[in-house]
Amino acid sequence: MGVSPRPLRGNLRVMEDVSLKILIIGDSGVGKSSLLLRFVNNTFDPDQASTIGVDFKVKTVQLAGKRVKLAIWDTAGQERFRTLTPAYYRGAQGVILVYDVCLPDTFEGLEVWLNELDTYATKKDLVKMLVGNKIDKTERKISRADGLQFARRNSMLFIESSAKTRDGVQEAFEELVQKILQNPDLYTENTSTVNVSSNPSSGSEPPSLCGCSLV
């Protein structure tokens, strides 16, 4: 549970630790693992292998005066792993739904993923972020307007990104986290220990909102 800040000598300040569970879902090959790799390791592998089952990475960011420990679950998009993923929906505070802007099938598949999400997610007010990936490619088939409309219809955040060029990746995650932090009911049971940060200013900078819109 959260603990109120206490005054300390010097410029040290107590920061609240928040743990969040983020899920990345979407059809196979839309770039879920690449988004995660870009966000966590700032790397990109053009020959990224298909995820088997579920992958998991952790990254800590400082946002809104809080140290946020993100446990990001990257699920396999292939149909054969569909029975594995529901177990990972439990307790998720945020979900990133990814589609490929060049593949209409992956955009149409979003309905199925939303249905899965509604069926298995235990937190009904979890924050959803729609990400149209691979905008670096020239053969785009899904316009930004279509994506925006879908996101608006399903009460989701929306952003377009490219894991290859880094466009929008950081913003997608940060905006999602910001939105979750605005609803303490979502994460209060996950806040835990008290830690001391000697550089509070770095964590309190407002996140970039470029290209991200709440609809």
Partner: peptide
């Protein structure tokens, strides 16, 4: 409703696999 929906959905997914 949710529990039955989850169960049926899971059985269907498993059946596909």
């Amino acid at each position: 409703t949710l529990a039955v929906c989850q169960s049926l959905n899971h059985i269907a997914s498993l059946s596909k696999t």
